[in-house]
């Protein structure tokens, strides 16, 4: 009898819990305002524009943006329209970081001369992987070396997508693109390994560098907030799944982000004042084939090539873990 009574009360609590759960509660730490409006022309299921949405939510309205051309510029600003609700400058392919540097210096001067109120304004520079790791590389290096207080975000979809899927130095080994096509001459497609832009940024000795992915939106937002706080340049490298260029189904961008992280292909980590730290450490990495499966850009890979990539990913992961462990002990 006693047990019957407690059974009833357990069911009641459970019901009460589900009832409670079913009421919409305001979302914590995820602002409702949108700074890139609906009506933008990104492909269906684009996680690059989702990354931009999440970044801007974390920063808030007091921001000035400089954006290199690329998908995010093309889909948001067909003249005379704009999807942005914050000050945003469209510039050439190679100089997002240089223009952002100018904005930072300019705003500083205006504040000093009391021409504008002395309030905190975030300067955000943004470029694709082409605009960042290739053509905007020099401007970015200058920005970091001079120490401007700017957040530079690279939205990395691993190729020049806007102009039709050409390879960049951020395209991973083994991916086929229109300028690194898999075939008899180059069985892997892209025959070079992805440039380690995060390590290059960190090597500038800037206060904050991190990787992120919109699948892990909490982690992403935390990192943007950290970047906003540091006194100096910060570099955030965001893996942005592109269904069009990766040839994956439209509804799977979030899942591929998860797999990229869980296979160690794209680890989530940060370098804060020279200290390396892993932000997500799966107990055991999933095999890379799980990430490759279903991606058209990797369809041609045979067992030998896959094994070669697996070895490299495992080695890189182990090195990263070791570096982070060493920094933890210091």
């Amino acid at each position: 009898m006693a047990s019957a009574v407690s059974d009833v009360s357990i069911t009641e609590t459970k019901m009460a819990e589900t009832e409670k759960k079913k009421v919409i509660k305001p979302l914590k730490n995820f602002p409702m305002e949108e700074y890139i409006n609906s009506g933008h022309r990104a492909c269906q299921g684009c996680a690059e524009v989702l990354a931009v949405r999440h970044v801007l939510k974390a920063i808030g309205p007091d921001v000035v943006m400089a954006m290199a051309t690329g998908c995010m510029e093309i889909i948001s600003s067909p003249y005379p329209y704009t999807s942005w609700t914050v000050p945003w400058i469209h510039i050439a392919f190679e100089n997002a970081a240089a223009v952002a540097s100018g904005i930072e210096a300019g705003l500083k001067a205006l504040k000093r001369k009391k021409r504008i109120p002395d309030k905190e304004i975030t300067i955000l520079a943004m470029g694709g992987d082409g605009g960042t790791t290739d053509i905007g590389f020099q401007a970015l290096s200058g920005m970091m070396e001079r120490g401007h207080k700017i957040i530079y975000v690279c939205v990395d979809n691993e190729a020049y997508m806007n102009t039709g899927i050409q390879r960049s130095s951020s395209t991973p080994f083994g991916a086929t693109t229109t300028t690194s096509p898999a075939g008899r001459v180059a069985p892997a497609g892209q025959m070079t390994w992805k440039k380690d832009m995060v390590a290059i940024a960190a090597a500038h000795g800037i206060p904050y560098t991190a990787t992120a992915c919109p699948t892990f939106y909490n982690d992403l937002q935390k990192k943007i907030l950290k970047a906003k706080e540091v006194d100096g340049p910060s570099y955030i490298h965001i893996l942005s799944v592109c269904p069009t260029g990766w040839r994956v189904p439209l509804h799977k961008a979030i899942e591929y982000g998860q797999l990229a992280v869980d296979t160690g292909v794209f680890p989530l980590y940060e370098v804060e004042n020279g200290v390396w730290k892993l932000n997500r450490k799966p107990k055991e990495l999933k095999p890379v084939v799980e990430y490759f499966k279903g991606q058209g850009r990797y369809r041609h890979l045979d067992d030998t090539l896959t094994a070669e990539i697996q070895d490299k990913i495992t080695a890189r992961w182990n090195r990263l873990v070791k570096m982070c462990e060493a920094d933890k002990e210091d």
Binding site: Y81, T82, W84
Partner: peptide, 8 residues
């Protein structure tokens, strides 16, 4: 472009 978010 003087009207924010007009692409909507």
């Amino acid at each position: 472009i003087t009207e924010p978010g007009n692409a909507s």
